[in-house]
Design a protein around this nucleic acid. Structure first.
Lengths: 236, 236
DNA sequence: TTTTAATAGTGTAAAAAATACAGTTAATAA
DNA sequence: TTATTAACTGTATTTTTTACACTATTAAAA
């Protein structure tokens, strides 16, 4: 038994995969292997299969490209205009994924000719993928203003200067070091390690790591790492 | 030309339509007119047609039931588990809609046997519609904590006690009247009218209305009408 | 006419949070 | 030993938020 006289459509998920390399935000793009727009740059995506939910499809597709499982992903608004794909109508469910850029470097799947692009100089992309990236970035800026999601971009151990650079990069602003440190440490989300990162200064900066338990418990709480006047006007 | 060897699916939008009657939040439900689950309560929904986007479908479906156009609507996360509809797989895109309950009362479309239910005593609903409502409520609570969206539920003229009752109802809490008034008026979103609502007190409460221009300009800004400790842990 | 009752309206002091701001420390390299 | 470079740290001020209670208005009742 089926619903009759209704049109069925292709439904795809597209992964907007962000990384942070210590200085810049990067987006992982692939070179599309098939027509139309063969060899143009594209988000990694795929059609939802009969056996899987959208979340499962997104995880599958992310793993296919990066080898990574259990990645922080979040669905954003569907893209659904009838003509967005010239071949055939496809409803796209975009997912924002935040990964530790180092974890991907080890596992390059050459099948897709993937490449990290600086988000400030993105290539032309197929269809409406650029819009998806813009929406994803707005969402990320909005959400990161209140929730500590950016930690997903960092390796297990990181320094406060790295953390601050990550926030400064996302909002393209300078934040006062003393105020930033105070706010971050007051959340008790971080544990100080007895080890320094000497790679970027003579003095060296202490490593910190996430207090995983506290992090999970307080993930959905409202935090405020960035100054009031840098909080973006909200797209969500 | 088509994408080959891919499964096409039905895609529906479902409208989670909220109203506020001065005391309680209400949800507009319909009695499903066809199998399966005929006569069970359901969100108003429908399949996306070939010519329309999801947003357009949601607007069409909302108008079909309520007669209202240009209603505040927002898409929330897709529901996509393969078995959610027993007849056939359907991907559902739920939309939250906020309407002035008075505007609907005048235009009851009897075809759907629609009814307002208090959100505190919802009937059994088909499929996963209850989950959609829960998700929509969480989203509403979260968003309304930072953005002045609840005004969409009020008529053109409303009083401060009404406004406060609406916020208190959503968060199921009591808010200090003086602090609430100060915060609300400091946004300059409201214009005081020279007229009182005498229906709920002898003294009468002054009507206020939205300063439409200021409202639209500041809609996406971050506001804070509710006390810090009532801000919900975030689902978004 | 006076009293009662019920809700609307209003201000201030204290606490908490956010901001602005600059000198000292540590370690390597010269 | 000195110079260089980035990490680290504290306080005073401003802004925001909170806590808290009495007066005003008017219709209805006495």
């Amino acid at each position: 038994m089926k619903y009759s006289n209704q049109t069925r459509l292709l439904v795809a998920v597209d992964c907007v995969i962000f990384g942070f390399d210590g200085a810049d935000y990067k987006l992982l793009l692939i070179q599309r292997g098939f027509a139309p727009e063969k060899e143009k740059w594209s988000l990694m995506g795929g059609f939802i299969q009969p056996s899987e939910s959208a979340d499962e499809a997104a995880s599958r597709i992310l793993e296919q490209l990066t080898g990574l499982k259990e990645v922080y992903m979040e669905q954003i608004q569907a893209f659904s205009t009838p003509e967005r794909d010239p071949i055939e109508r496809v409803i796209a469910l975009p997912y924002v994924a935040l990964i530790d850029i180092e974890k991907y470097k080890t596992q390059i799947n050459d099948d897709f000719h993937a490449r990290w692009y600086n988000i400030k100089s993105l290539p032309n992309m197929i269809f409406d993928h650029k819009e998806m990236v813009e929406l994803a970035l707005n969402k990320l800026r909005y959400k990161a203003a209140f929730h500590p999601i950016l930690f997903e971009l960092l390796p297990e151990k990181f320094t406060l200067p790295q953390l601050q650079a990550m926030y400064e990069g996302l909002y393209d602003t300078k934040i006062d070091k003393r105020n930033f440190t105070r706010k971050v440490l007051s959340t008790n989300l971080l544990k100080k390690e007895n080890e320094k990162d000497k790679s970027s200064s003579k003095k060296g900066a202490y490593y910190y790591s996430l207090d995983e338990e506290h992090y999970k418990e307080n993930f959905t709480n409202i935090h405020n790492f960035i100054p009031r006047n840098e909080i973006p006007v909200g797209n969500e």
